[in-house]
């Protein structure tokens, strides 16, 4: 219904409105994206390939993928558990818990990084103990994982809670009354009903996990080839005035953003059709 052109918008009005909106989208959104691609390929495809194939860049790509591979599954488990508890049951403290789940969204990424330095840094609470036992958390991969986990924490839960609350628990009750066990009910009834919402949450969580900059920047230590994720590699190269190399790495992340938008649109279309 929303796609029907409204008769109220006259031709002139539509022209003005479209002009204004498309200029905003063009100038603020399309142009920055275009600049990334233009600068990335400014030195030709060969230079781009060299930049992306550079050992440091490759190790940054590997680290980014590894961190994401740890963080996303953990957040999926958390998101599903939190959504099950918060949407299928009513209990004391539920609304407090609901807002606590969203809390990481209100925390600036830099603060998200900072809190782990305060806990595990050399001058942090557990710093001495960790140094004595030769365990490195900050300025190392575990710190990057923790910081990324923190900033992406609510993504899956946030998609699932409203969806599962709206779906209610009648289908689960029906499954139980037909003799299904708890796990059978979850796997055969709940999971198929939330699959698109779950996928949507995973896509957003994945994009943020791969692209997180602020929080990771604080805890990483910027050790080339070791603790630089792809976004950090972009920063390091940019600050060294290696613009083409920096934009080459940035173009990979821009590609990730575009793929994310395409998948997101696809999931929206698909789930919208299922609901209809």
């Amino acid at each position: 219904m929303n796609n029907l052109p409204s008769k109220d918008v006259g031709a002139l009005e539509n022209l003005l409105l479209s002009g204004a909106a498309l200029s905003i989208i063009g100038l603020l959104i399309v142009l920055p994206l275009g600049v990334v691609l233009k600068e990335a390929f400014a030195g030709g495809l060969k230079l781009w390939l060299e930049s992306v194939g550079d050992p440091d860049a490759r190790s940054a790509i590997k680290l980014t993928l590894a961190v994401t591979a740890v963080v996303v599954p953990l957040n999926v488990v958390f998101g599903v558990a939190a959504a099950w508890a918060l949407s299928k049951f009513r209990f004391k403290g539920r609304s407090l818990l609901l807002s606590l789940v969203d809390l990481p969204f209100a925390v600036s990424p830099v603060i998200a990084g900072l809190i782990f330095i305060l806990l595990f840094g050399r001058h942090g609470w557990m710093g001495t103990w960790l140094t004595d036992h030769h365990i490195r958390i900050v300025f190392a991969v575990p710190g990057i994982i923790l910081a990324t986990l923190f900033v992406t924490f609510p993504f899956v839960a946030r998609e699932l809670i409203p969806l599962m609350t709206e779906q209610g628990s009648e289908e689960e009750q029906a499954a139980l009354s037909l003799g299904a066990t708890g796990w059978q009910t979850f796997l055969k009834v709940t999971l198929p009903n939330i699959k698109w919402g779950l996928l949507y949450g995973i896509i957003l969580c994945n994009a943020r996990a791969m692209g997180e900059f602020g929080a990771v920047s604080v805890v990483s230590g910027h050790i080339r080839g070791e603790t630089n994720t792809l976004p950090l590699q972009v920063e390091v190269l940019y600050n060294e005035y290696s613009f083409t190399a920096s934009f080459a790495c940035a173009s990979l992340l821009a590609g990730l953003a575009i793929v994310t938008l395409i998948l997101k649109t696809f999931v929206e279309l698909k789930s919208g059709r299922d609901a209809a």
Partner: peptide, 15 residues
């Protein structure tokens, strides 16, 4: 419209 959500902030920054 969702690009600023999806684009890593470092990339937006340099762009």
């Amino acid at each position: 419209v969702d690009l600023p959500f999806a684009l890593p902030t470092a990339v937006s920054g340099i762009a």
